[in-house]
Computed example of a mutant assay.
Amino acid sequence: MIVKNLEEFRKAKGWSQKKLADQSGVSQTYISELEAAKKQPTVLIAQKLATAFGISLADLLRDEFRAPKCKEVKEIDSGSERSV
């Protein structure tokens, strides 16, 4: 699931693997290997990638891809929670 999501989030941002590498601090080679399903990321690497995308680790690991623009944000409004 992370393999598909990683590539989909990267493409949704319009980023190359190099751009993601620059933003996340994860090497472009390692990102390429992740997208090719040759490697599985550690939790630390997955968190770095999620942070670079501006999403939660849960969003990156989600079974169903959701574009970054669909990210749910919880707000407190007059004492009640609502999704925006």
Score class of each variant (00 low, 15 high):
residue 59 D to C: 04
residue 33 E to Y: 12
residue 36 A to M: 09
residue 29 T to L: 12
residue 13 K to W: 07
residue 35 E to C: 04
residue 22 D to S: 13
residue 14 G to C: 12
residue 10 R to W: 12
residue 37 A to P: 02
residue 44 L to Y: 15
residue 16 S to T: 15
residue 8 E to F: 08
residue 39 K to G: 01
residue 61 L to N: 09
residue 33 E to L: 15
residue 75 E to A: 15
residue 19 K to I: 09
residue 2 I to L: 15
residue 32 S to P: 00
residue 43 V to L: 15
residue 80 S to G: 01
residue 22 D to R: 02
residue 9 F to W: 01
residue 40 Q to I: 12
residue 46 A to Q: 03
residue 23 Q to K: 11
residue 73 V to N: 05
residue 25 G to S: 08
residue 24 S to D: 05
residue 10 R to I: 10
residue 21 A to D: 06
residue 68 P to A: 07
residue 46 A to P: 02
residue 28 Q to Y: 01
residue 80 S to K: 12
residue 51 T to G: 12
residue 30 Y to A: 13
residue 50 A to G: 11
residue 30 Y to H: 14
residue 58 A to I: 09
residue 25 G to A: 11
residue 22 D to Y: 01
residue 4 K to A: 14
residue 17 Q to K: 15
residue 64 E to A: 12
residue 57 L to P: 00
residue 12 A to F: 03
residue 84 V to N: 06
residue 76 I to H: 11
residue 71 K to G: 12
residue 52 A to L: 09
residue 77 D to F: 06
residue 13 K to Q: 08
residue 79 G to S: 03
residue 51 T to K: 15
residue 20 L to R: 08
residue 67 A to T: 07
residue 10 R to P: 05
residue 50 A to W: 06
residue 35 E to R: 00
residue 72 E to K: 12
residue 29 T to H: 05
residue 47 Q to I: 07
residue 19 K to D: 03
residue 46 A to R: 05
residue 49 L to M: 14
residue 82 R to Y: 11
residue 7 E to C: 07
residue 5 N to L: 12
residue 82 R to C: 06
residue 18 K to H: 07
residue 46 A to N: 07
residue 2 I to C: 07
residue 5 N to Y: 03
residue 77 D to W: 04
residue 81 E to W: 11
residue 65 F to L: 08
residue 14 G to R: 07
residue 15 W to K: 09
residue 68 P to W: 02
residue 8 E to Y: 09
residue 57 L to R: 11
residue 79 G to W: 05
